[in-house]
Amino acid sequence: MQAFQLHTGRVAPLNRANVDTDQIIPKQFLKRIERSGYGQFLFYDWRYLADGKPDPSFILNHPRYAGASVLVAGRNFGCGSSREHAPWALQDYGFRAIIAPSFADIFATNCTKNGLLPVVLSDPEVAKLLLNASQFEGYFVTVDLEKREVRDQSGFLAHFEIDDFKRKFLLEGLDDIGLTLQHEPDITAYERGRKTFATPAST
C-alpha cells in the first residue's frame, strides 16, 4: 500500500454535503476488472455535459484547480455504495487527501486501505478552507499525518484526530493482510472452538 506521511498540494473546494459514491464514480464504470485507470471517470456526470464536453461550471474543470491534490468537501462525504472504485478514482485523478467535517464509514476505510487520507476537521475549519480555496488562486495546504495537522502558509492550522493504529498503518504503508497473517495461529485456534451451527450445514 502507498504510504502517507506529509503532502502539500493545491486545494479544490467541493462545497456540497452528502457527496455519494455514485457521484464520485457512476455505476457504468464499475464493470472493469482492473484496479487502475478510474481517474478519467471521476465525478463523471458532474464533470461532463450530455454531449461529452467538460461542464465549465464544475469545480474540477476550472483551470485554477488543475492539478489539485487535496479535495475539501461537505459533511458525510462518500456516503452510499461501498464501491472501492470511489477512492481508486479519486487517487488516480491525483488526490492524496480529502478534508471534510465527516465521512461515511465504509468510504473512509476504503480510503485508508489505499493510502488516500480522509481528514476530519470541524465545520468552521472546513468552511475556512473552502473559502480560502475559492478566494486565493493557487491555494495550497500541507496535510501532515505525523503531526496530525493541516496548515497553510498564512497561518491556518488545524489538528485532526486519527487513531494510532490507522496512523501507523498509513505512515509505514503496511501490508494489511500480511499483518493479520502474523496472527495465523490465533485464527486457527479460534476456528477449532467454533460451534458447528455457526457454519453452513452441509446439504
Binding site: S82, E84, P87, D176, I177
Partner: peptide, 17 residues
C-alpha cells in the same frame, strides 16, 4: 458492507481488523 481491499482480506484470512 466492506470494500474490495477488505474483501481480499477476508478471502485470505477469514478475519477483519
Amino acid at each position: 458492507g466492506i470494500g474490495t481491499s477488505e474483501v481480499e482480506h477476508v478471502l485470505a484470512t477469514q478475519c477483519l481488523r
